[in-house]
């Protein structure tokens, strides 16, 4: 083992580990808070800001003026997506934010109907 007296050890990991930021909560269920779920601050959120952890406050600041997707929140806070999802779940539980499920993918139209329409159009306009 090296015996240099003043070989300083520098701690490079984050001072506050992620599991403290999430306060040991577990991940919300798989389908909740997907990448594209939109979140926004609820109306009375601004009054509780002082009691929040810095991370929750940062998230709240981000979504204060409108809807932002979960993925965007994660990118802005530079926190792992899962950590952000845990935070969001906790914040929604305490009524600080509202989450809006992603707009469902454009309704699946029946392919056959479309084909029939196309065929009809072709027949009509002779394309």
């Amino acid at each position: 083992m090296s015996d240099e007296p003043d070989e300083d050890l520098e701690l490079t990991s984050a001072l506050v580990p992620f599991f403290v930021i999430t306060n040991g909560r577990s991940l919300p269920p798989e389908h909740a808070y997907g990448h594209t779920t939109l979140v926004s601050a609820s109306e009375h959120a601004a009054t509780t800001v002082r009691t929040l952890t810095p991370e929750a406050r940062q998230v709240l600041d981000l979504v204060m003026d409108g809807f932002l997707s979960v993925a965007e929140v994660a990118a802005h806070t530079r926190l792992p997506l899962g950590v952000v999802r845990i935070l969001l779940a906790e914040m929604e539980e305490s009524g600080l934010i509202i989450a809006r499920k992603p707009v469902p993918r454009a309704e699946r139209v029946d392919r056959e109907v479309l084909n029939a329409v196309l065929d009809g159009l072709r027949a009509r306009f002779g394309a």
Binding site: P17, F18, L27, H35, P80, L81, G82, V83
Partner: peptide, 15 residues
């Protein structure tokens, strides 16, 4: 693996 469900376990390892 922030977006992966393994994150939950990784957080415990971190603790």
């Amino acid at each position: 693996y922030g977006g992966h469900s393994v994150l939950g376990d990784l957080l415990e390892v971190g603790h």
